[in-house]
Computed example of a mutant assay.
Amino acid sequence: MDFNGNSPIYAQVMDLLKDKIISGDLNLGDKLPSVRDYSKELKVNPNTIQRAYQELERESLVFTQRGLGTFVTEDRELINTFKTDAINKLIETFIDDISRLGYEVEDILEILKTHLKEEK
């Protein structure tokens, strides 16, 4: 993973894991890699992974069972809420970016229709 300097590495690890959870790459109840293994995989300090896991636990996306590891929440509704929030954030960013280019709502809708037709 390539980290950028715009946000702390633990936050970028959190975003990576959130993406995996809401996209279904990590399923309800899946065990996360151990802190040691994940830190080796991402080539970061284990404390960074530990902090990411702690923050995700505060957000209730994961839970820890002492001696067993850290697991993805089994609360589908919570994951759906995070998914909706992520979609809304992407849409808001898209609208803001394209509006700065001078496009109006009607133009944006037409561009989306054209693009979606081409995707099919």
Rank of each mutant, 00 (worst) to 15 (best):
M1A: 15
D2Y: 11
F3E: 08
P8R: 13
A11Y: 10
L16D: 08
L17S: 05
K18T: 11
K20N: 13
K20F: 08
K20D: 15
I21R: 04
S23E: 07
G24F: 03
N27K: 15
N27L: 12
L32F: 06
P33C: 01
R36D: 13
D37E: 14
S39C: 08
S39N: 10
E41V: 05
N45Y: 06
P46H: 01
T48E: 08
Q50T: 09
Q50E: 15
R51T: 12
E57K: 10
E57R: 10
R58F: 04
S60H: 13
L61Y: 01
R66A: 12
G67D: 11
F71T: 04
V72K: 06
V72Q: 03
D75N: 15
R76P: 01
E77S: 12
L78W: 00
L78D: 00
T81W: 00
T81Y: 01
T81Q: 13
F82A: 10
T84R: 13
D85H: 05
I87F: 12
N88V: 03
T93D: 14
F94G: 08
I95N: 09
I95Q: 07
D97H: 09
D97K: 14
L101K: 11
E104P: 02
E106Y: 05
L109G: 02
E110G: 06
E110K: 14
E110S: 15
H115I: 05
K117R: 15
K120E: 15
